[in-house]
Design a protein around this nucleic acid. Structure first.
Length: 380
RNA sequence: GGGCGUGUGGCUGAGCAGCAAAGGCAACAGACUGUAAAUCUGUCGGGGUAACCCUUCGUAGGUGCAAGUCCUACCGCGCCCA
C-alpha cells in the first residue's frame, strides 16, 4: 500500500489523497462502506461498485465465527471469496470487545453518549463486562451464534486477518465504553498499546497494518496514545473509541490525535459517518472513515436525501409517485418511485431494503465526492 | 323447519362473574455512528398534567353487591339434519 497526498487545504487539516493498493486506488477522503460478513447486506459486489464505493471494510470477528478464515483462505482469500475486485480492509474485532461487552451491559453506543444517559462514569478501573472476559493477552468471547468460547488477542486477530487477506488490516484494540472513567481508559490504553506492538511483531504478510489510537474523550490520553501509536511502524492509523458528549467536541478530539500522527500516513476514523459529521471529520484531517449508517438505516426503511432523512415506511409515501431524491442520478432514483419503495417495505419485501441500501450508499458516496471537490476548489 | 355453535376495541383473537378487557397485526411516534441490528422502545376507546372521570364486548330485557362473562327473547353469521 502506498499513500500519496495530492493537496493539503490551507483552510483546515483536510487533504486530498490517493490510497494505492494492489487492488486499485482509493481517492480520499473516502467513506468505507461496511461489509461485516464479506457482504454489503442486500447487495452483490457489482452493485456495490455501482454505488461509487471504492473500498469496503469487513470484520475479523464475524468471519472467524462464520464461515471461519480457513474457508475464506481456501476460496482464494476475501477478494475472490466475495468477488470484490477493489480494495478491502478488515477490522480487527476490537470493536466487538466493546459491542459484546459493556455495550451490551449498558445498552450503549460507542461514539457519542446518548442524551438520556448520564455521564455516571460507572465503569471503573478493572471492571469487567458480564459476558466477555478482557485479559492481558486478549479477550474471551462467547459466540453469539452458539455460545462457544472464543479467544481473540492481537496474535490471533492478525493471523486471522492474514488468512482473510484484505489489503489493509487493523491492530487488535479495546474500544473503550463511553461510561469508562479516566483510570479505566488509561489502563485499557496501555493494554491496547502493548497489543499494537504485538500485532506489528506477529504480522508476516505484506498487508498494510493500521494501528489504533484510543484514549476516549480525555485529551491527555488521546495525545499519549497518538504519540505512542504514531511512533510505531504502522502503515496508517485508525482512530477509535468515543468522542465526548456532543458532536461539536468530536472535531476537536480528532484534531488532538491528528496533530500527533505522522503526516504522510493515512488516518482512518473508525465508525463515524453521519452526513452531518462528514465535513467536520474531514476538516479535522481524516482520510477514510467507515460507518454502518447508510446500509443499516436502509434496512430500517430510512432514505437519506437532499430533503433530509425520510422514513419510507410511513404511509404517506404510498401516495408519492416521485423519486426518493429528485436530484439523485442513481439507478434507484432513475427507475423507482417512493410509492413502490414504501409498498415493498410495508410488505416486508427484501427488495425494498436493497433499493434503499443502494440509494443511501450512492448518496453518501456522492456527498463525500462533493467534499473532495470542495477541497480541490479550496473551499474548505 | 329442527339441532348445535358463534357474535369482543381499525382487523385478528384471548377472556366465561370483580377489566378499559391478554397476544398478534395494522397505525402513529422515537432510537440506531469500527453491524449479536430486515431490530428495539413507546402510544394505541374518549377526556384530563395527574390521583381520576366517562363510554365500551350484536340488540333488548333479567338474575347478582358485581355481567363480554349466567338466564330469556330477538337479530346476524356458521356448520349439520330434514
Amino acid at each position: 500500500m502506498n499513500f500519496k497526498i495530492l493537496k493539503k487545504s490551507s483552510k483546515s487539516r483536510a487533504r486530498l489523497g490517493l490510497l494505492e493498493t494492489s487492488h486499485g486506488v482509493v481517492e480520499t477522503p473516502c467513506l468505507v462502506p461496511v461489509a461485516t460478513q464479506a457482504v454489503v447486506k442486500t447487495l452483490e459486489s457489482k452493485e456495490v461498485e455501482e454505488t461509487k464505493s471504492q473500498i469496503l471494510i469487513s470484520n475479523t470477528f464475524h468471519l472467524h465465527l462464520k464461515p471461519g478464515e480457513k474457508i475464506v483462505e481456501k476460496a482464494g482469500k476475501i477478494h475472490k471469496f466475495m468477488n470484490w475486485k477493489r480494495p478491502l480492509m478488515t477490522d480487527s474485532g476490537g470493536y466487538q470487545v466493546f459491542s459484546l461487552g459493556f455495550g451490551t451491559d449498558y445498552g450503549l453506543g460507542s461514539k457519542i453518549l446518548k442524551k438520556e444517559q448520564e455521564r455516571g462514569e460507572s465503569i471503573k478501573i478493572n471492571a469487567q463486562p458480564q459476558q466477555i472476559k478482557i485479559g492481558e493477552d486478549g479477550v474471551e468471547f462467547r459466540s453469539p451464534l452458539n455460545g462457544d468460547k472464543i479467544f481473540i488477542g492481537p496474535k490471533e486477530s492478525i493471523k486471522i486477518q492474514e488468512k482473510i487477506g484484505a489489503d489493509i488490516i487493523f491492530a487488535f484494540d479495546e474500544c473503550t465504553p463511553p461510561l469508562a472513567d479516566h483510570d479505566y481508559v488509561k489502563k485499557s490504553l496501555e493494554k491496547t498499546h502493548r497489543w499494537a506492538e504485538i500485532c506489528l511483531k506477529v504480522k508476516k504478510s505484506d498487508q498494510a497494518l493500521f494501528g489504533i489510537v484510543q484514549g476516549s474523550r480525555f485529551k491527555d490520553l488521546r495525545i499519549e496514545s497518538a504519540k505512542f501509536i504514531g511512533s510505531l511502524n504502522f502503515d496508517g492509523f485508525g482512530i477509535g473509541g468515543e468522542f465526548g458528549n456532543d458532536k461539536k467536541e468530536m472535531g476537536k478530539m480528532i484534531e488532538w490525535v491528528v496533530d500527533e500522527l505522522p503526516e504522510k500516513k493515512p488516518r482512518h476514523l473508525l465508525g463515524v459517518g453521519y452526513l452531518e459529521d462528514m465535513e467536520t471529520i474531514i476538516k479535522s484531517g481524516v482520510d477514510t472513515f467507515d460507518c454502518t449508517v447508510p446500509t443499516h438505516y436502509a434496512r430500517r426503511g430510512i432514505a437519506f436525501t437532499s430533503e433530509g432523512k425520510l422514513d419510507m415506511k410511513k404511509t404517506i409515501y404510498l401516495k408519492k409517485n416521485e423519486p426518493l431524491d429528485k436530484e439523485c442520478v442513481c439507478n434507484v432514483c432513475k427507475n423507482y418511485k417512493k410509492d413502490y419503495i414504501c409498498h415493498l417495505l410495508k410488505a416486508g419485501e427484501i427488495t425494498g431494503m436493497k433499493l434503499l441500501t443502494f440509494h443511501n450508499l450512492h448518496y453518501f458516496n456522492t456527498f463525500v465526492e462533493e467534499i473532495r471537490n470542495k477541497i480541490k476548489r479550496g473551499e474548505i
